[in-house]
Design a protein around this nucleic acid. Structure first.
Lengths: 103, 103
DNA sequence: GCAAGGTACCTTGCATTGCATGGTACTTTG
DNA sequence: CAAAGTACCATGCAATGCAAGGTACCTTGC
């Protein structure tokens, strides 16, 4: 199952950030809510670093009411573009797989 | 797009073999017909080797009417089981992604 | 018959990326 | 002040798609 997630987890994160900004641990929890997408911190932190160095997300620090400060991630314009592109690729891809699986 | 295919191409091949036996170049052509799943020989041959050593497919040689002999691949019982398992994982996974993408 | 082209086989090495593991630091609470 | 909770992040491995490159068989045209 883990191999299935490859290449999509990043875009799922972008989709979550498209709704509103999140900090990393929060993203981990939201992904875990969709069982098939569950990804631990060891997946999320390196992923977020990549998204950031690719310019798809921007970050800013905010104090937490209880605990260490949080780094919040939000979508850049480039991130929104990338998400849009993915949506159309995903549709084609999942349609193709659906078709094949019914064969 | 190529990262999207990770983890699914193998099962797409199993699905094709579930319908009838194929030889490698034929699989390449059938996948290419579904554009989003196009995979070259450099993907298919190592993949088929793995499927074979995992016991998911069996092979036998057959002469070609025009050209070198072909190695035909067919599903084993284990391969059929693996395909079934994937189908249910795929449904869960693609539903989860669909949901998130609409958020 | 033999050179050229087509068909089919396969291997090697690289890049990407999910994940387990392990570590640091800040804050609250007993 | 120690322990627990929350949050950050890095390192190294494993899986696998793919480009590039190589071998062998067979047919066709000269």
């Amino acid at each position: 199952m883990s191999q299935l997630r490859r290449g999509t987890v990043g875009f799922c994160v972008l989709a979550l950030l498209n709704a509103r900004e999140h900090y990393a641990v929060e993203l981990v929890r939201e992904l875990a809510a969709h069982q098939a997408l569950a990804a631990g911190q060891g997946t999320i932190y390196p992923l977020l670093s990549r998204l950031r160095s690719d310019g798809l997300v921007a970050t800013h620090w905010k104090e937490s009411p209880n605990g260490p400060p949080r780094r919040y991630y939000s979508l850049t314009d480039e991130g929104r573009g990338s998400l849009e592109l993915f949506r159309s690729e995903w549709t084609q891809f999942s349609d193709a797989v659906d078709t094949l699986m019914k064969t």
